[in-house]
């Protein structure tokens, strides 16, 4: 591919107090890529994902989105955004789906989905409403639009959270273990929605423990171990003939 990557992370480091969680991770995501990030707990995969939009401030590294490098300035030991405007602008175009959904409980499902486009992007209300209803329909939850998040199951809440993210028309979507907080029988409905998004050609970075899902939808799989990229390649390569011994043991124990 000769095109510039949509998102590029260069040599991301992160140190918490005295533990170095990320020891220099680089990654490129081109438009339409679906990259799954695997690894045992403590491998730093969630931290890495959270460093991309500065939910966590990296200690070192560079973040380039659409060819534009995010301006960082040192703040204590870590780096922080030097230009809040640039950061919020970037965040508007990078969706993030949390493990624990994090819907706003004082707003209905519909209000949750409309909040970003109508109050952050300031799009006209009726347009936003139509789009929100379309998205809720797409994630199969249109009939619950006037309910509050706490009246929904975990799987339903996560699907609303995905609709809320899609409502911003993000160029890249980051998923941070989107099914890890769900009861096993609810995992399928969320993965189903994500599979649809992958098929639409959306650019996605997914931190997950769902191995067969990762194998099936990814264009690339990255295996993290102790803060470094231990293995990386096509799903076929990583799952069937990994170079790394660690990766082989991990996969044989979980998949």
């Amino acid at each position: 591919m000769s095109k510039a990557p949509a998102l590029e992370l260069i040599d991301i480091h992160k140190t918490f107090t005295d533990v170095e969680v990320l020891k220099g991770i680089s990654l490129k995501a081109y438009d339409g890529d679906v990259i799954s990030i695997l690894g045992s707990s403590g491998s730093g995969k969630s931290t890495f994902l959270r460093c991309i939009n500065l939910l966590e401030n990296p200690t070192k590294g560079e973040i380039i989105f659409n060819g534009e490098s995010l301006k960082l300035t040192s703040s204590g030991r870590d780096l922080a955004a030097a230009d809040m405007k640039q950061l919020t602008k970037m965040r508007q175009q990078i969706g993030f789906v949390f493990q624990s959904f994090n819907l706003w409980p004082h707003m209905t499902v519909l209000q949750n989905v409309m909040e970003g486009p109508s109050h952050v992007l300031k799009r006209p209300k009726h347009e936003v409403m139509d789009y929100a209803e379309h998205l809720l329909n797409k994630v199969g939850i249109a009939d619950k639009k006037h309910m509050y998040p706490n009246q929904l199951s975990g799987g339903q809440q996560q699907r609303v959270a995905i609709a809320r993210t899609l409502a911003m028309d993000p160029q890249v979507i980051l998923f941070d273990e989107p099914t890890s907080a769900l009861d096993p029988e609810l995992v399928g409905e969320v993965l189903g929605v994500m599979r649809k998004l992958a098929e639409e050609g959306r650019t996605m970075l997914i931190v997950t423990h769902e191995m067969s899902f990762a194998k099936e939808v990814s264009s690339e799989v990255v295996f993290l171990h102790k803060g470094v990229v231990e293995e990386k390649g096509t799903p076929d390569k990583v799952f069937n003939s990994p170079d790394s011994e660690r990766c082989r043991t991990f996969l044989s124990s979980t998949y």
Partner: peptide, 10 residues
């Protein structure tokens, strides 16, 4: 988490 949800929509 609810605060982070605000941050990520910008």
């Amino acid at each position: 988490g609810e605060v982070e949800a605000c941050k990520v929509v910008g």
